[in-house]
Design a protein around this nucleic acid. Structure first.
Length: 571
RNA sequence: GGACCCGUAGGGUAGAGGAUCAUCCUAUCGGCCUUCGAAGCCGAUGACCCGGGUUCGAAUCCCGGCGGGUCCGCCA
């Protein structure tokens, strides 16, 4: 347990003992105060009502009853709060020795022996990933990393939609359109090369009835289980997916499991779901098409009708999604779906269906709002689009130029390597710093921001710490903090001590945007310390300060790791 | 028409009942490189969409507007 958490327990114990002396066992909160007045605080407002006394009074009496002992260095009452200050020496040496001991595992929670699955990205394999969709892999991958630090065994999973009209159109285009007819793609990558066929096939389908007929017949054969068509579609989907994987790899995202939608048709799971749902009391039939009435589940209006078969008995995407989720839920203790906000209703309906099928576990959805461009909504068709591949190239190029301006001592190869790390860091940070539910307007100036609240800011601070340590050579690591008396040193250590709390909130509380914010806080506190206090030429304090620099470097490295961002030792 | 989400300085963003400073970044203005990396540090300016209500106390909760996003297929 972290130093701060064990101090919290100590405070809780002291307060409840004092309260029982006052003749009550009322519940209370212990919080980290927003004001800088204390390390922990107990707001006495909620106690006031039942105790029928003023908050200030209660705080005052408690502050007298509680002894200053152990790590409690000070208790005081102010404005209805009971404030606690932790013994500075205990806080600082506790934090530093814990970081030295655990290294990059510092800030992690104990192993839970629980398997959790994070499904993310799952974008339709019909074209390249654009910035509008990039939020999904970045949020999903970051959440997975946070959960892993929270002690879960994490698996990431991509659900590949290789069933349905879209992929059939793509396949028809690849098989029937001559290469010469298609606009040449800007890139050699499979996804960029193939999407041109998809676009043209869509156009031809609209204007040429015979094409439309061909595609319809292909779709029918697909749904009747025609092995040739299915394997054809599977092949094109795999080619496309290979391109998408390359892009994801470019931003440091790789998934553990790829599950193909067609599997649930092949193995009969989807059919079994249909049969079971038909027997439920919520099921009804219109002209052969089956649906559920979800009125009782709080779904109203047009939304309450949830259709799960066509009138020819074939399954729908949503039906297969139920089968998929039953499968996933059987494989893991917990299941998280990272979804665009357009999936909210679908997700609700899925939950209802699972309840009807008396599933014990439910998927936990995490929604994000869409990214648009200053010109408006992103649309591949209208050409209002920024591809993730282009964003990566731009960011890496921009980073390269920044490095070239500053460094003359690095090899071309090394500069390219660092540029990649810095450019990708800027992209990931820029996206994950914003609460997922907020709308996001993509701006180049923000995506390529390397100052202040940015990925490169954290990387820079990390590189700076590494540089100091390089110059220092050997030194004696110590948790003796008696030499660390400067206010910037105290503040820096205090910031470092919060890591475990942040990890928990980010993972369990699904607030991953706290991680970049915390990273900025650490880097900022370090830079202030750096500006105010000499390290290498600091006489007796040298070892203690170098130890602090090393601890900060370790924490920054962990935070960057949690964000899926590289931690360069120079840049 | 119905449902859900979001409105915080010029731009972005944190805070999700509480402490006479509402966080941080950016932009703007002014300082700091012959000490360890200036992608940095210090200072200044500037904000809770509107109207009601609940409360000792509201940026935060409730109701009603206004503005933006999303959904309401026998599509995926």
């Amino acid at each position: 347990m972290g130093v701060m958490n064990s101090f919290k327990e100590e405070v809780e114990k002291a307060v409840s003992e004092a309260l029982s002396k006052m003749g009550t066992d009322i519940r209370f909160d212990v919080e980290i105060p927003s004001a800088d007045a204390a390390d922990l605080a107990v707001p006495c407002f909620i106690l006031a009502k039942t105790m029928k006394r003023s908050p200030a009074d209660i705080a005052k009496e408690l502050s007298v009853l509680i002894e200053k002992k152990g790590r409690i260095a000070d208790v005081s009452a102010l404005n209805g709060y009971l404030n606690f200050t932790m013994d500075r020496n205990a806080m600082m040496s506790g934090t530093i020795s814990e970081i030295m001991e655990k290294k990059e595992d510092y800030g992690c929670l104990p192993k839970k022996n629980k398997k959790i699955n994070v499904e993310h990205t799952s974008t339709n394999p019909t074209g390249p990933i654009h910035v509008g969709r990039a939020r999904n892999p970045i949020i999903g991958d970051t959440l997975a990393r946070c959960l892993s630090r929270c002690g879960y065994d994490v698996t990431t999973e991509y659900y590949v939609n290789d069933v349905g009209k879209q992929v059939v159109i793509l396949t028809w285009g690849i098989n029937n359109i001559p290469k010469e007819d298609v606009e040449k793609a800007d890139r050699e990558k499979a996804d960029h090369a193939m999407v041109a066929f998809y676009r043209l096939a869509n156009k031809m389908m609209e204007s040429q009835p015979e094409v439309s007929d061909e595609i319809s017949s292909m779709l029918r054969r697909f749904e009747n289980g025609d092995a040739d068509v299915i394997s054809d579609v599977r092949r094109t989907t795999e080619m496309m997916l290979a391109g998408l994987k390359q892009t994801l790899d470019g931003i440091g995202v790789s998934l553990n499991v790829y599950t193909w939608e067609s599997r649930y048709i092949e193995n009969g799971d989807a059919k079994r779901v249909v049969e079971k749902l038909k027997t439920s009391k919520y099921a009804g039939n219109d002209d052969g098409a089956w649906s559920l009435d979800l009125e009782e589940f709080g779904v109203h209006g047009n939304n309450k009708k949830f259709t799960f078969t066509r009138n020819d008995g074939t399954t729908l995407y949503t039906t297969r999604d139920i089968a998929y989720h039953l499968d996933k839920l059987s494989r893991y203790d917990r299941v998280v779906d990272v979804l665009g906000e357009d999936q909210k209703l679908g997700s609700k309906q899925l939950t209802c269906a699972l309840e009807i099928l008396s599933s014990e576990k439910m998927p936990e959805p995490m929604f994000y709002s869409f990214v648009s461009l200053p010109e408006g909504k992103m649309s591949t068709r209208k050409g209002v689009v920024v591809y993730l591949d282009d964003l990566i190239d731009e960011a890496v190029e921009y980073a390269y130029n920044e490095i070239k301006q500053r460094r003359t001592d690095l090899s071309e190869e090394r500069m390219r390597e660092i540029a990649r790390t810095v450019g990708v860091g800027a992209i990931r940070y820029n996206i994950v710093r914003i609460q997922p539910e907020k709308q996001f307007v993509f701006k180049w100036s923000e995506a390529l921001n390397f100052d202040g609240n940015s990925g490169p800011f954290l990387q820079y601070s990390h590189a700076r710490a590494c540089s100091i340590l390089r110059k220092a050579g050997e030194f004696k690591r110590t948790s003796d903090v008696s030499k660390l008396t400067d206010e910037y040193e105290v503040r820096l250590v205090k910031v470092l001590s919060k890591f475990e709390n942040i990890t928990e909130q980010a993972g369990e509380g699904r607030k991953i945007h706290l991680v970049p914010a915390y990273g900025h806080e650490v880097a900022s506190a370090f830079n202030q310390f750096y500006a105010a206090v000499p390290v290498l030429n600091s006489g007796e304090a040298r070892d203690a300060r170098l130890t602090l620099v090393e601890c900060t470097m370790t924490v920054l490295k962990s935070i960057l790791g949690c964000l899926g961002i590289g931690a360069p030792e120079e840049m």
